[in-house]
Design a protein around this nucleic acid. Sequence first.
DNA 1: CGTAAAGTTGAATTCTTTCAAACACGGTGG
DNA 2: CCACCGTGTTTGAAAGAATTCAACTTTACG
Lengths: 265, 265
Amino acid sequence: MADNNDKPIRGAVSNDPDVPLSFPTTCRDCVVRSRAWFQPLDDDEVDAVQHYKSEHRVVKSGGHIVREGEACKELFTLFDGWAFSYKLLSDGRRQIVKVHLPGDFLGFQADLGGPSVCSIEALTDTVVCVFPRPNMMHMFQEQPKLGISLVWMTASDQMMNHEHLTSMGRRPARERLAQLLLELFIRVRDRTGSRDDSIYFPMTQEHLADTTGLTSIHVNRTLKELRQEGLLDITRRRLTIADIQRVQSEVGVDLERLTQKQRVI
Amino acid sequence: MADNNDKPIRGAVSNDPDVPLSFPTTCRDCVVRSRAWFQPLDDDEVDAVQHYKSEHRVVKSGGHIVREGEACKELFTLFDGWAFSYKLLSDGRRQIVKVHLPGDFLGFQADLGGPSVCSIEALTDTVVCVFPRPNMMHMFQEQPKLGISLVWMTASDQMMNHEHLTSMGRRPARERLAQLLLELFIRVRDRTGSRDDSIYFPMTQEHLADTTGLTSIHVNRTLKELRQEGLLDITRRRLTIADIQRVQSEVGVDLERLTQKQRVI
DNA sequence: CGTAAAGTTGAATTCTTTCAAACACGGTGG
DNA sequence: CCACCGTGTTTGAAAGAATTCAACTTTACG
């Protein structure tokens, strides 16, 4: 295993000098503390994961971690920064299907042998831990617990997906946006352990539009509405939600419950 | 293990006398041939699954297999008939998140210990194989391969979910509807092995509306449009698609690829 | 300081929903 | 056999939500 594993690379890329995502400070931590992985891993298992990792990789903002259609040769753990998975339509429009935060596991899909079904783009400058796919296969065979954690992750994503689906299908723009923003707010604070009422927030209105299925213009107007009602505010790459409960009731879904870590088996 | 396992219960409930879903004819087959389960199971594993099953259960059309909010004590394989998972909004509207066909595995979710996150309703009269949750846990521990198959299922659902999400977010009513209908058409024919250009189709326009995020009125108008263009037709509980390719190109997604069985690990 | 990217605003258009009213069909019971 | 009823489908007209097009302002950044 490479001997730079425990070398802190914190701050290698940083888009948020004042309130950094105090996430993994070494690659070992990256694996251990990642939301993606089932919590109670013993040292053996952690070592195993470390072993299968091939490298760190820096991907600049706007760059691609995975490209739809290309063979999926590697899997990733998002180590630092934000990213998102999206699908492109023939007319050039896109739909963002998931926003990734540090710790998320990227690139996994049903047909690992086939072409990637989504593109993954770096939203900020990012660092990812790279796991070559063949290694990964060994790993899951040798460490069944990690396979289980994979079930958990996927099932958990599924649940959030259903929530999004419901939102897109049956809720007006206001609620869709509020729900998305609240969800990200909670996810970030869960990871950083922060209790601050504002978070670093690198998504543009166009990203929000592509996530909620609206136009960036309509996102703009809706955001203005929400701001004027004092529900939330996005200024200069910061999202502020003063009263979570108020937004919560606006949204009508208990997102805090949904974003909790849950045990599968 | 109960000795009625190999007793054919085919036809116990039937909504489609002329072209029945020629699916499982015994419960053993139910497990073996289910889309839900990873293909190459050896006899040991099949026996194991049989062992953990507690019973068959008949659920009449409109009845609930799972109720959102209630503890999830059992998991199911849909043995015969159609069902769907949905979420209810506070204002009474609903979003169908997935339509289930015979062979699908129902009720699995990230938080197995907690309340169900979706309701599952029988669309036609149905028969389900019931697996008490504690049994299930044993099973996955003793038969790792089945755990793997679970990963595959969930990941595969995920992919379809992303497709729906994209459809709902970025496609007009025409394409959304066409995509849904084509998907179901393909899934049914895959399971039955049929080459017929029409399938039994029990969904009402309201079901279609709740799946695509439209109004049943708008579904009606859009369906009329699609019918007049000769793309597809729904009459008397039958969906006919004469030229799959034409609908395919209308939709712009290769659904046939997506609905294929794929190997995960 | 100048340029590109992101955000803002208005007006017109399009898509989708809402409300309201018929219509068709399959089953029930007289 | 037919009237009756409920569910599901169809249609029209009006209202509402979201998009498009187009221009303008602000912010970030070399």
